[in-house]
Design a binder for these strands. Structure first.
Lengths: 319, 319
DNA sequence: GTGCATGGTGTAACAAAGACACCGGACAAC
DNA sequence: GTTGTCCGGTGTCTTTGTTACACCATGCAC
């Protein structure tokens, strides 16, 4: 049925482990084990092993390692020439398939704070990094229902103290940042407000908070000020607390990840104790989540790569 | 370097998991999940899952399962057409590579008994099943040094009682038979010898044995005759004990696997007690061994498949 | 020599691939 | 109808392959 153009199935064992082929291919194209590893985003030892195992499997010497540089043997050249063609065909076929059929949309759910304070300012970069992909950002307090494909990606903050965010089954995650949590205020506010020497001095200020003072209490306790009676405006999202601080409404406890831009522009100032610097601590971390079975799908993988690069590039002052 | 014909490396994540591609390809070519599974020597559930995961990965529907028959969708057809070409290229390239370069020799080490009583009579079958492959049979008491590639395959008998044959590291094995061990003699011998009603009657006969009477003692003990004083000719290989029995020199304790041909031709007779049949027991099993990293290499995989088929086809009366 | 490339081992953690037991639907023979 | 047999699919457990990390040895530039 429908198999006119093809003969019988090639023997199952007629093809070496594919990972080994890819490693060999990459090393051959790029002329080096470590270069190949970089391109494939693998450890160089893995590539080395794959090539060895391919040689073992075929029982042939494909590369020459003698001059501490990797060169192909005659057989290696010939084999690579043909293998590479096969790999290209698979890659192109897959790419073409997914170019059609609305695989050009990537729905990213995330916390409202992450959306407005980090993702939106970088949306141009995202679109450059993911050409031809329509990015759909959905700030939400709830996680998407991955089973119903409500979203491709979800980005959430998982607190270290308190209940730690449940990752649903069949959903894979990776932690891309554990930002420091720091007290911030506007320069204008600080000029007219009582000075802060140590943690206990925060009682004299309006402390901007989200649902509860829990984060503030944890932070104060870690800096030697237990059980203070604090007060201040309640604002339900991280970006609102930051905006309130910018407007001089008091001191917010912002995570450095979201506040970085405002700090860089001078809209906010990190408050350091005059007696001793407040030690930077993290109270949680950001996770990226996606269905396990779509984890390596191209749009998702591309976004993850971009996110990773953007985070490490722009904010490696994160604790 | 040497990459004139090729562009840059295809994105690592631009190709779905290869196992999934193969499963989809096989199901498409053969028109069914179970057929594909048979061809790939996998469980059908595995193929089913692979196809599902491919659909998840691409986020597309590739097959239609609605009429309890598997049909390809339009996208599925188009994708399969191109994928299949890539897979064929990889298979052909590998096959061509290994056809040259003396990968056409398969060195099989084995016990002398296995060589002369089982493998040699079937050597024609082997050569039919492995076209273009020169088979080199090396009967030996020692195992080959796999590290030095002294042999591709080794076939040994591992006793259940006594020391159980050590499999070296990085060597994989599989057990293809646990033959029954049975007392045999020639018809001519039995005519003139005292009758055997029960196990203890064996003391009246010359018992042909290999290095020691250990097997005989174990066998007799399992059949209710402990600590008998036995005697008979010592012959150091399994095939010699069988040949001695054929020549009427006494009773041999042969494993059914090696004696099957002689039994079928009437050269030997299995001795059954006249009071009650001796229960058939196994005292060990045959293992096939090969380097782990060459386990799925084509010549070795082919030989394993042939061996498996030959064993189950001709001798499923093995216990 | 020092410093920095290159490729290679040993080991341990983890995700993928697979087998096995079982289920529910379609269809044919009876 | 009932039975038998084909089909594809789920839940669960085990095995295996893939991977990273810490570390080593060699070659070459300065």
């Amino acid at each position: 049925m429908d198999s006119e153009p093809f003969g019988l199935l090639p023997d199952r064992k007629a093809i070496p482990p594919f990972a080994a082929l890819r490693a060999f291919d990459a090393a051959a194209r790029l002329g080096g084990v470590r270069k190949a590893a970089r391109a494939l985003q693998l450890d160089h030892t893995v590539v080395s092993r794959h090539i060895r195992s391919l040689e073992s499997w075929t029982n042939l010497v494909l590369v020459d390692r003698s001059h501490s540089r990797l060169t192909l043997t005659r057989e290696g050249h010939e084999y690579h020439r043909r293998i590479a063609q096969g790999i290209d065909i698979l890659a192109e076929a897959t790419l073409d398939l997914m170019k059609q059929h609305d695989n050009r949309e990537l729905t990213i759910w995330c916390t409202p704070g992450f959306a407005s304070k980090w993702l939106l300012p970088r949306l141009g970069d995202v679109e450059n990094a993911l050409p031809g992909l329509a990015v759909d950002v959905r700030p939400a307090d709830q996680q998407p229902d991955f089973n119903r494909h409500e979203g491709d990606i979800d980005i959430r903050y998982s607190p270290t103290y308190g209940e730690p965010l449940t990752v649903p089954a069949n959903v894979r995650h990776f932690e891309f940042s554990s930002p420091a949590v720091i007290p911030v205020a506007s320069p204008a506010y600080l000029e007219q407000a009582p000075p802060i020497h140590r943690a206990s001095d925060f009682v004299d200020h309006p402390l901007i908070h989200e649902e509860s003072f829990e984060n503030w209490q944890t932070w104060l306790a870690s800096h030697g000020a237990e059980e203070l009676e604090v007060s201040g405006p309640k604002l339900w999202h991280a970006h609102l607390t930051i905006d309130a601080a910018i407007q001089g409404r008091g001191i917010a406890l912002a995570n450095h990840f979201l506040a970085a831009d405002a700090l860089a522009q001078g809209d906010l100032v990190e408050i350091k104790g005059s007696d001793e610097d407040f030690e930077r601590i993290s109270l949680g971390s950001y996770l990226l989540m996606a269905r396990s079975d779509r984890w390596t799908a191209l749009p998702i993988a591309r976004f993850r790569d971009w996110l990773n690069a953007a985070v490490t590039a722009s904010l490696n002052r994160n604790i």
